[in-house]
């Protein structure tokens, strides 16, 4: 039995480990498009500010994969899944067959049609490689502009604050848009932002970016012109589902799965930040992002791929929980 796992994050790595524990003879291949061994993405801000070492960032190593007899293929992007043929095609055109496939590709900041033309002027804040690049540029940076929705914006602001940068934050709403945070926390967040002397531009959005003499001029919908040495911008964090385009596998924003983490195609599973499940309490589809959830879904997907029949338990809370710590602990530590 060949198990192929696309994605080396928490869900993918957990699934690989789980499968190997249940099916020692099974062949497990785990594929990641980054050049590094799997690391904890949620610790990147701490790594940037020096609070966490590189050793703490990487949760796996060559020895781990050797010991588990898991084949890691890093730096290789999967371009397309062919569920009818039970194959995948890499960006370098190699074709690999699978008996069971797990998509655990996570999600990443995406640019909508307004920002897309300025992609080259926008600094991404998502991968270890992004952080290495930012570290290199930091000595030249005094002011940064941040525009984006969600907790990732908070995380980025915290990171830039810790390394002593002046921050302008642009948001479409009246306040920081963190829909998953319970309302009683919002006031505290606002005052935390104020304490950090963040230039808060509300009810606005970026419509154009220019590079002038190595600085960036950001123009907003309301007609403001703001300058920064780095611009971080995104519209949404969206599941990485490009390899499933036109495959017939059902995708809303994320891959639609049942409680056993099965997608609409036979033998294709999905787990982690790239999946969307209907949440009866929210009465909405839901991407339960974050490390603990990815580990949980990866474990269940791995077990079911190896022949078990376990259901994912939807948590009855919407309070965001990152690294097992509630939001307050992360923000005010």
């Amino acid at each position: 039995m060949r198990y192929v796992i696309v994605g080396t994050g928490a869900a993918g790595a957990t699934a690989a480990r789980t499968i190997k524990r249940m099916d020692r003879d099974g062949e497990v291949v785990i594929i990641g498009d980054e050049r590094f061994f799997p690391y904890n993405r949620y610790l990147l801000t701490e790594f940037l500010s020096g609070a966490v070492s590189a050793a703490e960032l990487f949760h796996t190593s060559e020895e781990f994969f050797e010991a588990m007899d898991i084949r890691l293929r890093k730096g290789q992007a999967v371009e397309r899944v062919y569920p009818n043929d039970k194959t995948i095609r890499f960006a370098h055109n190699e074709v690999m067959s699978y008996d069971r496939l797990l998509i655990a590709t996570g999600r990443s900041p995406s640019l909508g049609p307004v920002l897309r033309p300025y992609a080259k002027l926008i600094q991404r804040y998502y991968t270890f490689e992004d952080i290495l690049l930012i570290q290199k540029r930091l000595p030249e940076v005094r002011e940064v502009i941040v525009s984006g929705r969600g907790l990732s914006a908070l995380d980025l602001i915290q990171g830039m604050y810790r390394v002593g940068k002046k921050i302008t934050y642009i948001t479409r709403g009246q306040a920081i848009d963190v829909s998953t945070v319970e309302s009683h926390l919002m006031g505290d967040l606002d005052s935390a932002l104020a304490e950090r002397e963040i230039n808060f531009v509300h009810d606005d959005r970026i419509v154009a970016i220019e590079c002038v003499d190595n600085r960036y001029l950001v123009k907003t919908f309301q007609g403001k012109e703001l300058w920064g040495d780095l611009v971080f911008a995104w519209d949404n964090y969206t599941p990485n589902v490009g390899c499933l385009r036109n495959t017939g596998i059902e995708v809303k924003t994320g891959i639609l799965v049942d409680l056993r983490m099965r997608s609409s195609a036979p033998e294709v599973y999905a787990a982690g930040d790239c999946v969307e499940i209907y949440h009866p309490t929210l009465k909405n589809y839901w991407i339960n992002f974050g490390w603990p959830n990815a580990v949980e879904q990866g474990r269940i997907a791995g077990k079911n791929m190896a022949g078990d029949n376990e259901e994912y338990q939807i948590h009855e809370t919407t309070l965001f929980n990152i690294l097992g710590k509630p939001l307050e602990a992360r923000w005010w530590d």
Partner: peptide, 18 residues
């Protein structure tokens, strides 16, 4: 009402009205 897909067709999820 929210839908789920059944063989590609939208079907209402009971109790999901908003």
């Amino acid at each position: 009402v929210r839908n789920r897909l059944e063989e590609g067709k939208p079907v209402a999820i009971p109790g999901s009205e908003f």
